[in-house]
C-alpha cells in the first residue's frame, strides 16, 4: 500500500504505476455528469475552488445534515466513470487535475490526457459505500448544490487513507485495456474446447 498525501505533485503522480494500491489522504472534489458537462462547456469553477493538482471523485454521495449544522457522508461509493469519457480529457488538461477516482475505468482519450498532463485514474471498489464513507473524515464545503441537486453537486471532501487502485497510470498503461484483451483471447481459446461437463 502506497500512502499518497497532499500536495499531489506531478512527481508523486508519475511515480505511480498500474496495479499500485494507494491510500489517499487529502482533499477530493466529487463530480458527476452535471459538473463534467458544465465544466466541459466552459463553465467556471466556483470561487475558492482550485483543481490544479487536485483530485476528482466520480461519486454521488448520500449526505445528511449533522447536529452541528454541517454535513455527514453516510454512503459514498464510486459511480461508473465511462459516462464522463467525452469530457474527462479536456477537464484534466484545462484544470491540471492530477487524479480521477471512479469505477469501471475510462477510455483512450482520458488515458492520453493522463499521460500528457501527469494524471492517474484511481479505481475504488464499486458498491463499497460504507468502507469508503468511513474514509471520508470531513465535508469541507459544497458547491452547485442548488443548481444540480445533492448527488450531482460538487462536494469538497477530506479523506484519510481512502483505498484505491491505480488502473490507468501517467505512462499510457491501462489495466482495463489489458484485462479486456487477455480475457477476450482466453474466451476465444475456451470456445474452441467443449463445455465443462457437470
Amino acid at each position: 500500500m502506497i500512502a499518497l498525501n497532499r500536495p499531489f505533485t506531478e512527481e508523486k503522480i508519475r511515480a505511480l504505476k498500474v496495479g499500485d494500491e494507494v491510500a489517499l489522504t487529502g482533499v477530493v472534489f466529487t463530480a458527476r455528469d452535471a459538473v463534467h458537462g458544465y465544466l466541459h462547456d466552459g463553465g467556471a469553477l466556483p470561487p475558492g475552488v482550485d483543481l490544479r493538482d487536485g483530485i476528482l471523485y466520480h461519486c454521488g454521495p448520500v449526505v445528511l445534515p449533522d447536529e452541528r449544522g454541517g454535513w455527514k457522508v453516510t454512503a459514498a461509493g464510486p459511480t461508473t466513470s465511462i459516462r464522463e469519457e467525452p469530457y474527462q480529457g479536456a477537464i484534466i488538461r484545462r484544470f491540471g487535475v492530477r487524479g480521477v477516482i471512479g469505477k469501471g475505468g475510462m477510455g483512450e482519450r482520458t488515458l492520453a490526457a493522463c499521460q500528457a498532463g501527469g494524471c492517474v485514474y484511481l479505481h475504488a471498489v464499486g458498491g463499497a459505500a460504507q468502507v469508503l464513507a468511513e474514509a471520508i473524515v470531513a465535508v469541507r464545503n459544497v458547491y452547485f448544490l442548488k443548481e444540480f441537486g445533492s448527488p450531482e453537486a460538487m462536494w469538497e471532501l477530506e479523506v484519510r487513507d481512502f483505498p484505491v487502485v491505480v488502473t490507468m497510470d501517467a505512462h499510457g498503461r491501462s489495466l482495463h485495456q489489458e484485462v479486456l484483451a487477455a480475457s477476450r483471447t482466453a474466451l476465444a481459446e475456451r470456445l474452441k474446447e467443449p463445455a465443462h461437463s457437470a
Partner: peptide, 13 residues
C-alpha cells in the same frame, strides 16, 4: 468458464 477468463473482482484480473 467465466472464472477462467481472468476478469476478476472489479475487473482487476
Amino acid at each position: 468458464t467465466a472464472n477462467e477468463l481472468g476478469i476478476g473482482p472489479m475487473g482487476f484480473g
